[in-house]
Design a protein around this nucleic acid. Sequence first.
RNA 1: GUGGAUGUAGCUCAGCUGGUUAGAGCACCAGAUUGUGGCUCUGGGGGUCGUGGGUUCGAGUCCCAUCAUCCACCCCA
Length: 433
Amino acid sequence: MQVLITKRPRGTEDILPGEVEVWQFIEKTARDLCREYGYGEIRTPVFEHTELFHRGVGDTTDIVEKEMYDFEDKGGRSITLRPEGTAPVVRAYLENKLYTKSQPVKLYYIGPMFRYGRPQAGRLRQFHQFGIEVFGSKDPAVDAEVISLAANFYKRLGIKSFDVQINSIGCSACRPLLKEKLHEYLYSYQKDLCKTCLGRLDRNPLRIFDCKSQVCQKIMASAPKPLDFLCQECREHFDKVRNYLDVLEVTYSVNPRLVRGLDYYTNTAFEFFAEGIGAQNSIGGGGRYDNLVETCGGPPTPGIGFGLGLERTLLSMKRQKVEIPLDKTPDIFVAVPGGENNDLMVKEAVRILALLRKKGFSADKDYMQRSLKAQMKYADKKGFKYAVIIGQEEIDRGFVLLRNMESGEQREVPTAEIASKIKMLIEGEKING
RNA sequence: GUGGAUGUAGCUCAGCUGGUUAGAGCACCAGAUUGUGGCUCUGGGGGUCGUGGGUUCGAGUCCCAUCAUCCACCCCA
């Protein structure tokens, strides 16, 4: 059991230097985009009262039924590590009375989510989502904005191949009729449905559209579709969303079988797909939730948002071999030969190192008592652009040696001019490519 | 929660039907006449063979359990 302290919990990941830069790139892309679109960041706790998710996500969802990371705290409260971002943001919207501010309220978040299940490709117990929520507006142009923001996110990350699918699942006025017709239709095929769908028949017949079983697919092919039962208002809303998407030049397809897993969705539903995530191919999704705020005890407030899986985004970037423009190589390594007067030289090295860093260079020195040769080898492996070599001879004459690690070219530079000299060289390189 | 595969050095793996001090490549460290990298050569450190039981004179090699990883299902991001 002792070994547990050297092992991360199942379904979690360490993100190390080398990999973390990609995460920073993804996060920066999201933040830049949100700033451009006028979304403000919100940071909510990673845990909430369990009840929030029962109410907000829905008791019949798998997330709540079997995937929640819940526990009792020392005060006897039932606490849950958030499995998704929308319910907490709705809670914060209400608790902070954001409905009293000018509407719409446009928010975004980036952070870890938790779901208890067996890990596999593209599925972890702690994973990360980038999400946005818009409160207070029913304007179909908002639906289109939300969808296009997500599409632009993927595009800007360099993911060339992904699909946008949209659908409308109606509102509280027209959905009951759909459910009734669907129910009626499915009852005649009751004995042919797969086991899981049989269970869904009464609880959530819409989900049967999602089933991968051949038989169910065949049955659903001619089942009543949500789009056929939309009320006038929903129909118009959906048409306008599509028009705006065309204006925004977002390529999408309508998938009449697209239904989302969470209970709170109404009207517009959408999902993003890409290859290379194992058996999973959904990299994000969202939709409108015009009743959720009220359900959670707030004033009637329409809302819409998405949640995008960052691990899955990353996987599809890797799959599509996206090149990320990152300059990770450090600038200057300060090397010191061993031998007599080493103390003196090291002091000078420490002084120059501090100076270079103050000037904004990424600079380092040896801390392993390595020979000069080993220091050079280290500098090479780490990809330093320049080496500054400080020896007794040079100190005496007020010079240091400046070596270009790529070309091997080496020259003497007066110690006082070292920073400006390197700056000139590095900037010159950038200009010359 | 269900099913399948796997678990030997930091990494990728070898180790025949159980038998002396468990190997290779890469990585790491050091040296090749003593102030300098990228090639080459030489040497070195490092392994409770996932863990715990069992069978056996003897197990990395067989059996059981357990944990973990990977993959798939359910479902989702």
